[in-house]
Nucleic acid binder design. Structure first.
Lengths: 250, 250
DNA sequence: CGAGTTGTTGATGCAAGTCAACCCGGGTGG
DNA sequence: CCACCCGGGTTGACTTGCATCAACAACTCG
């Protein structure tokens, strides 16, 4: 990923952006818990169970299916792909996780991670010991509520791509989703890098790589976007959003 | 649903099946919390926020999209269908909920139910006020853990049918899933009623109703099952499970 | 017994998968 | 500096599984 075209928030420069957060500005929890009305002392309690890990490099695994589950993690920088391998040896991409997003929630039920997580580029994480976090949640209603919300939200999100949408709709939904999630983290929603290869996008959307290629080409021909290798520019956001609407809005 | 062919567990006769459960033997929470090591006094605490409601009759709505969210519910008897209507007016079936299963978990994030829930036959429920339950969960680690697990499990479950499986695999996975869930509740896994019309099955599996009809017919011709109207008998469970394996096992 | 649901059957069309060839950019090494 | 290779990406020709459309059959209920 090129810092010039995909400006990366630097955790170090953000570490002192006020008097509320001293440990991790890009963690989903810290921001979300603040909005839940948690005070500073509560955040300090949360602080003690946070562990900054990384960097991981492209291809490094954060965890593998079957590893004992002990922690969830928030992505601080980079992109994480989660996937499983079925018994025929075929890969199934479950999702891509951008900065600010949480991975490992689907492991809470069970002692082991149910999937693999691999870094697509240089990745930094905040690890939260889940047992400790659950204990803390019993004392902090705001944290408990936040955890419930994160879990509940993921249930709905997982079902989004399950519908029988066309290739165009899937692709549009993927791009609009990516754009919105990047925007929420301060990146440009109009111009960004696809950090994953076409095969991963295709696999995630349940399409053939050739179809991904063709749809992107057609979108470009229609003037909806401009794509060059992994660099992507959204030209007609409204038009793309219109296509994606039934998928995202349900 | 015919009681003669689909024997219904009677909550009344089960109400005194030991000294552990006096309020609701068929609730998912009571059983699960027991296995979490919760003691009797803890269960009594849970008791006070349980409300038995019903019966609802076929076609009655338990809640509708947009209704204010205040409670989750465990199905005690009958079948519940959850669905949404997209803005083109098309229905999307999200799932079927059998006795012992919990509905409303995807509503925790947000103030309103994100979908509709309708009774497919005569339905009895246990309602749990969610705010009260969350408060109680802060005092009872076992209950908190149980809630986390239920939520986490649903994340994985929602993603199951998202793959690009064939009509045969989807149908097999649906039937095997149904069979197993019924068995877990003490019903026969070999012979049961499809409580929902073909159109709902088709919609849930993202197939055309005609395809459902044809697949069932072919399964019968192959001797895998016997189907007569809504009555269904699984003849070659292993064969069906083999077909469903990649879908269910991931 | 007719009208309305619900389910089945057959004929046809199309979106997307598959297969195979080719392109292109970026390393590597002679 | 160019030749080569290799993995990711693109393109075109062909195939196919399932949807669609249309008609009909079976059941249910007033």
């Amino acid at each position: 990923m090129n810092p010039a075209t995909f400006p990366r928030l630097d955790p170090r420069t953000l570490a002192d952006d006020g008097d509320t957060l001293h440990f991790c500005s890009t963690c989903a929890f810290s921001q979300a818990c603040l909005s839940e009305g948690m005070d500073k002392s509560a955040l300090m309690d949360l602080h003690v169970l946070v562990e900054h890990v990384g960097p991981y490099h492209a291809g490094d695994h954060l965890f593998r299916e079957g590893d004992p589950f002990d922690a969830i993690a928030a992505v601080r920088a980079g992109t994480v792909k989660t996937y499983v391998i079925d018994r025929e040896g075929r890969e199934h991409v479950l999702g891509f996780h951008l900065p600010g997003e949480v991975i490992g929630l689907n492991a809470i039920d069970g002692e082991h991670y149910p999937c693999n997580a691999v870094a697509l580029d240089t990745v930094m994480l905040c690890r939260f010991s889940f047992p400790k976090m659950a204990m803390l949640a019993a004392r902090l209603p705001g944290l408990q509520r936040q955890l419930f919300r994160l879990l509940s939200r993921d249930i709905g999100r997982a079902a989004l791509l399950a519908g029988d949408w066309t290739a165009d709709q899937r692709m549009a939904a993927f791009l609009i989703g990516l754009s919105g999630r990047l925007a929420a983290r301060g990146f440009s929603p109009h111009r960004f890098q696809l950090t994953m290869p076409r095969t991963d996008i295709a696999n995630y959307l349940r399409l053939a790589p050739e179809t991904v290629s063709r749809v992107l080409k057609r979108f470009q021909a229609e003037g909806v976007l401009r794509v060059d290798r992994r660099e992507l520019e959204v030209l007609q956001h409204a038009q793309l959003a219109e296509l994606a609407a039934p998928v995202l809005r349900r």
